[in-house]
């Protein structure tokens, strides 16, 4: 996955790694892998779950969700226009100022 790959000709780019769907996919996928491993390798706690390997099944479910989001982002990429207005420091959400290079 490459972020902000420029295709030059049409004056617009794809959102790439920063597409929120890819971020969701990454987090869900990471959790999925960890839980599948925990389910396979870790101690199984049947007295808590009533006999189901909950970590394993949840992990598999999360991996499926991750694949769906990656697939969606791949099939229908969000196109970012060439000229993007820089976001203001939103007065409704104050915090330290944004560090950005001065506009040239």
């Amino acid at each position: 996955m490459s972020d902000s790959t420029s295709d030059g000709t049409s004056g617009s780019r794809k959102a790439g790694a920063f597409d929120i769907r890819n971020i969701i996919g990454a987090l869900m996928g990471l959790y999925g892998v960890i839980l599948v491993l925990a389910g396979l390798l870790g101690e199984h706690e049947p007295d808590k779950t009533g006999g189901v390997n909950a970590n394993l099944w949840t992990g598999i479910g999360l991996l499926v969700v991750a694949v769906v989001f990656f697939g969606w982002a791949r099939l229908r990429p969000i196109v970012v226009p060439q000229d993007v207005d820089e976001p203001d420091d939103d007065p409704t959400r104050p915090g330290p100022r944004r560090k950005r290079p001065p506009v040239t």
Binding site: D3, S4, R13, A15, G16, F18, D19, I20, I23, I78, V80, P81, V84, D85, E86, P87, D88, D90, G95, P96, R98, K99, R100
Partner: peptide, 20 residues
């Protein structure tokens, strides 16, 4: 991580999503 990237403006696409 998302917060820091947004603050540093590392990517135009984040600016795009947050510009309102």
């Amino acid at each position: 991580g998302i917060g820091v990237m947004a603050r540093r403006s590392v990517s135009d696409s984040i600016d795009f999503f947050l510009s309102g």
